[in-house]
C-alpha cells in the first residue's frame, strides 16, 4: 500500500522571498514555512508519495536521500497533524 499526500482544499499558500505562509481557511489558522517547506508544498499541487517528495527535495537541494527523507517525513507529519494535507492509501 502506498500513501499519497495532497493539499487540503482549504489550504492557501503564498510565497515571499523564498519563504512561505500557509493559511487554513477551515480552522482559521496560519503557519510560516521555510524554503524547504515551500518546495514540498509546491510539489503537492498534485498528490505525491513520500518518495516523490523526497525526490523533489533532493532535486532542489544538495542533501542526501536520508536527510531529505527525515526532513520530508517531519514536515509532512506536522502538516497532516495540522490538517493542511489529505492522505490517501492506494
Amino acid at each position: 500500500m502506498n500513501t499519497t499526500y495532497s493539499r487540503h482544499p482549504e489550504l492557501r499558500l503564498t510565497a515571499v522571498d523564498g519563504e512561505g505562509v500557509v493559511l487554513h481557511l477551515g480552522s482559521l489558522t496560519y503557519f510560516t514555512v521555510n524554503e524547504t517547506g515551500l518546495t514540498i508544498l509546491d510539489a503537492l499541487l498534485k498528490p505525491r508519495t513520500l518518495g516523490e517528495l523526497v525526490t523533489a527535495v533532493t532535486d532542489e537541494y544538495d542533501v542526501s536521500d536520508a536527510e531529505a527523507t527525515t526532513t520530508v517525513r517531519d514536515f509532512i507529519g506536522r502538516c497532516v497533524e495540522s490538517k493542511l494535507l489529505i492522505t490517501e492509501d492506494r
Binding site: T14, V16, D17, E19, G20, V21, L23, H24, L25, L28, T29, Y30, T32
Partner: peptide
C-alpha cells in the same frame, strides 16, 4: 523579513480566513 511581516500582519487582517 517579508515572511515575518506577513505572518505578523495577518492577525490584523483576520477576515482573510473567511
Amino acid at each position: 523579513r517579508a515572511q515575518q511581516s506577513l505572518a505578523r500582519i495577518m492577525p490584523s487582517s483576520p477576515w482573510v480566513s473567511l
